[in-house]
Design a protein around this nucleic acid. Structure first.
Length: 483
RNA sequence: GCCCUCAUCGUCUAGUGGCCUAGGAUAUCGCCCUCUCACGGCGAAGACCGGGGUUCGAGUCCCCGUGGGGGUACCA
């Protein structure tokens, strides 16, 4: 029998990393086992669901590379079937009409220290089958409750093993509301059965719902699937992941320059491991290594730092052409046409790749090389220029002179610069730092000779010249304030 | 309250009764490389939640606590 799996998000918000991880596990299992992966949107809560949210979820899955074989199906399309299932249980005496007022039942249950469903069942039994029929015919509104049979609900869970729940701990649940709409627990069972799902892999927040569902499978005469309840993903404080923790939607991370394959890799490693020491893995390797029996039981914390480290590794592994495309999208204004030179751009990428963890980093690192509109870091300017504008000027003009005759190569520039520094009787660093600010506007950059070569003679000299102008102004002001 | 569930370095994890003096990764710190920042290399520090059992032997099995999470809805 081919394995059939499903991912069934509710479109009540964005695609949460926890949901994304569940989708990743399902996908991985379907791929590695040659199974079928079904996508179902659980949109029965019309008030909170929206097409917009559905689209965000679909986009998020596509971004991650999670593809589905069937669907998306919409739970709302199955309401007639859900209702028919509920009514069948009622007809077979496996469910009963509940005419009671929820408020009143809750109050009474609280007073008598019992569960509301017990009170509801008591009232229904007191009414009797005939009484129930009469009130129904008379048009009294009622909900339908499942009459939980005595015995045990048993199911097999791939991560928790055999699970047994006594029916005493399962309460008679409403399966059809008094407005005629089906409830979640009935709808999932009906849909999973209809769609032939053989393995339900979902978050363990559903673990306590499972006995109810198992009992419904049996009452309805549907084949019961195997389950796999995977642990939840927590925020950095060990609490349930929420907006407080910042980004929790996969879309947020793509906006921050996280690569989909890195996110996929990271999510796959949350609650699962290949059993050896591999961490940096391609989707192919993950598919190859994945197996449900290595799924973990305990919740894990979503650690952004490690995600970024992993992203850096995936970024370094990306083919140059793809990174170029990202730079083209991330940068604009005069100068971007330089990216059209594949040799120049490839060289640039070699310089900035090891210094970048996210795509956003990469774009920012590339900026001073690509555009001529430099953004100066105030701290860098203060430290390497304005502390002593005179010295900075002297050193930069010396460099301009020293560079004027030499071939524009890493080694030639290096000996020219070191020679100039020696002549000024200062360490090479003393000239390198003001030069770095002139060329990049920043305190940190790739090696200074690489920067010079990458910028080329003309642009390098222009930048040094405009630095000198700025320093001349600063020097004049300094003079004024001193006099 | 009741029911369920989980528990190894800060974090992700390896560990299925002797291979554990508890391994790896990340983060942190130090050193090396060096013009800065990264990368890289080397090194340090860092964990079996507590208590009882079972056993010749327990991180690993059992029980009880404690802590976290979930459920207990005419939400999904």
């Amino acid at each position: 029998m081919t394995m059939r799996l499903r991912f069934a998000p509710s479109p009540t918000g964005y695609l949460h990393v926890g949901g994304a991880r569940t989708a990743v596990f399902n996908w991985l299992l379907a791929q590695s086992a040659g199974g079928v992966f079904v996508l179902r949107i659980e949109d029965t809560d019309r008030a909170r669901s929206s097409d917009e949210h559905t689209q965000v979820i679909l986009d998020g899955l596509s971004w991650l590379g999670v593809t589905w074989d069937e669907g998306p199906f919409f739970q709302s399309e199955g309401v007639e079937r859900h209702r028919a299932d509920a009514l069948r249980l009622l007809a077979e005496g496996k469910a009963y009409r509940d005419f009671s007022d929820p408020e009143q039942v809750r109050a009474e249950a609280k007073e008598r220290g019992m569960h509301p469903s017990k009170v509801a069942r008591e009232q229904a039994d007191a009414l009797g089958a005939d009484g129930s029929d009469q009130r129904a015919v008379a048009g009294d509104p009622f909900a339908v409750r499942f009459r939980v049979p005595d015995g045990e609900a048993v199911f097999h869970d791939l991560v928790h093993g055999e699970m047994r729940f006594g029916s005493d701990d399962v309460d008679d649940l409403v399966i059809l509301r008094s407005d005629g709409t089906p409830t979640y627990n009935l709808a999932v069972v009906s849909d999973d059965a209809e769609q032939g799902i053989t393995l339900v892999l979902r978050g363990d927040d559903h673990l306590s719902n499972t006995p109810k569902q198992v009992l419904l499978y049996q009452a309805l005469g549907y084949a019961q699937p195997t389950f796999a309840h995977v642990p939840m993903i927590l925020g950095s404080d060990g609490k349930k992941l929420s907006k407080r923790h910042g980004a929790t939607a996969v879309g947020d991370y793509s906006g921050q320059g996280i690569l989909p394959e890195a996110m996929f890799n990271f999510l796959a490693l949350l609650g699962w491991s290949p059993g050896d020491d591999r961490e940096f893995m391609s989707i192919e390797e993950l598919t190859e290594a994945f197996s449900a029996d290595r799924l973990l039981k305990s919740a894990s914390v979503f650690d952004t730092e490690k995600l970024e480290w992993l992203n850096g590794r995936h970024l370094a592994a990306r083919p140059t052409e793809e990174l170029v495309r990202a730079l083209e999208e991330g940068l604009d204004g005069p100068g971007v046409e330089r990216l059209g030179d594949p040799v120049w751009t490839a060289a640039l990428l070699e310089l900035i790749k090891p210094r970048s963890r996210t795509m956003n980093d990469l774009v920012e690192q590339a900026r001073p090389f690509v555009t001529d509109d430099l953004a100066f870091d105030d701290k860098a300017v203060e430290k390497h220029w304005l502390k002593s504008p005179g010295e900075a000027r002297e050193r930069l003009s010396a460099l301009l002179e020293a560079f004027s005759g030499v071939a524009w190569t890493h080694d030639e520039l290096e000996s020219a610069l070191r020679g100039a520094a020696a002549k000024l009787e200062v360490g090479a660093g003393k000239v390198i730092h003001p030069l770095r600010v002139a060329l990049t506007g920043n305190m940190a950059s790739p090696g200074i000779f690489d920067v010079l070569v990458q910028l080329g003679r003309e642009r390098s000299e222009q930048r040094v010249n405009s630095a000198l102008e700025r320093l001349a102004e600063a020097g004049a002001e300094e003079h004024e304030s001193l006099s």
